[in-house]
């Protein structure tokens, strides 16, 4: 009975396992291919000039310059929208976990936030632009920040919410029982417990803010100048990629690939950094 027999059942198991391994390899290699394509086409065109200069005259016909304005613009938009979303989401997440006592309402609000997270950013972009038209505003860094903040707000609130929800009350009680003051509890215990989740949420939102194109297309606009004021149009990296690729000049498109490479690296650094930092910070937290 215990001989290794190749029954129909064992064969099924083996075949399915192979198929699943095949699927995994397909998925991973396709995703690897993307990274490889971006690196192999972007890296050769990457020059110091690209990341240190703004577009010179005739940049879009192959003349000199770089996309520093777009890199900075994206970072500004990412930072600004993350900060704005953070400021708005903290009280909401706190209220959701302290004062909204009916779990029925809590659950409804959470459901709505999860649903909102999927709304396409082009919808927010179009909304932002039509509001700006109504009030006679032109595209600006500030408008971009506000709209991107709307895009990332739901995920930010939900991330904070998860962090707060998992906050063990035992922990604060234990710390209080040891004779620590409440301020010390807040500073050393609560913050340390919350930090990993908080950092992850912030960095992921930042990554999304940097990379989103459809929401800034109309709201932040585009310019070849450096972003200097909240009220002037601001270039962003995804749009820089898009515009460079839509020119007929090979040299410009090559720089578009390099810009895509810069964007990818930026997002990967933020995303991997988020994971690493959250891992490092959660060494002393209670799961």
């Amino acid at each position: 009975m215990q001989r290794p027999t190749l029954t129909r059942r064992n064969l099924g198991e083996m075949v399915m396992k192979r198929i699943m391994q095949g699927a995994l390899v397909l998925v991973m290699s396709t995703l690897g291919l993307i990274v490889w394509t971006i690196i192999s086409r972007g890296l050769p065109s990457l020059t110091w000039e690209m990341v240190s200069q703004t577009p010179k005259g005739g940049f879009y016909m192959g003349k000199g310059g770089g996309v520093l304005n777009a890199i900075l613009g994206s970072i500004y938009i990412g930072l600004g929208s993350t900060m704005l979303a953070l400021i708005v989401s903290l009280p909401i997440a706190l209220a959701l976990n302290t004062y909204v006592q009916q779990t029925r309402w809590q659950e409804r609000i959470r459901l709505m936030l999860d649903v909102l997270w999927g709304i396409p950013s082009i919808v927010y972009g179009a909304f932002g632009f039509t509001v700006m038209l109504t009030f006679g505003l032109r595209a600006s860094l500030l408008a971009g920040i506000v709209i991107v903040a709307l895009v990332i707000l739901p995920i930010m609130i939900r991330a904070m919410d998860e962090v707060l929800r998992r906050m063990p009350t035992d922990l604060t009680h234990a710390a209080l029982a040891l004779g620590t003051t409440r301020f010390e509890v807040a500073r050393h215990v609560v913050l340390r417990q919350m930090l990993p989740g908080l950092v992850t949420a912030i960095l992921l939102a930042f990554g999304r803010g940097i990379g989103d194109a459809a929401s800034v297309l109309f709201t932040a606009g585009y310019t070849d100048r450096m972003p200097t004021s909240l009220f002037s149009p601001t270039a962003t990296l995804p749009l820089a990629v898009l515009f460079q690729l839509s020119t007929p000049f090979e040299a410009v498109r090559e720089r578009g690939y390099a810009s895509a490479f810069i964007l990818t690296i930026l997002v990967l650094v933020v995303s991997i950094g988020a994971r690493w930092l959250s891992h490092a910070l959660s060494r002393y937290t209670i799961k």
Binding site: I34, R41, I210, T264, I272
Partner: peptide, 24 residues
């Protein structure tokens, strides 16, 4: 190993996927 890689790749911006689409 695989899970974090998938999560990180999910964060790649759409325009980068677009560039890959154009190139490959």
């Amino acid at each position: 190993i695989i899970k974090p890689i998938l999560d990180v790749l999910a964060a790649i911006p759409p325009v980068v996927y677009g560039v890959w689409g154009l190139l490959a």
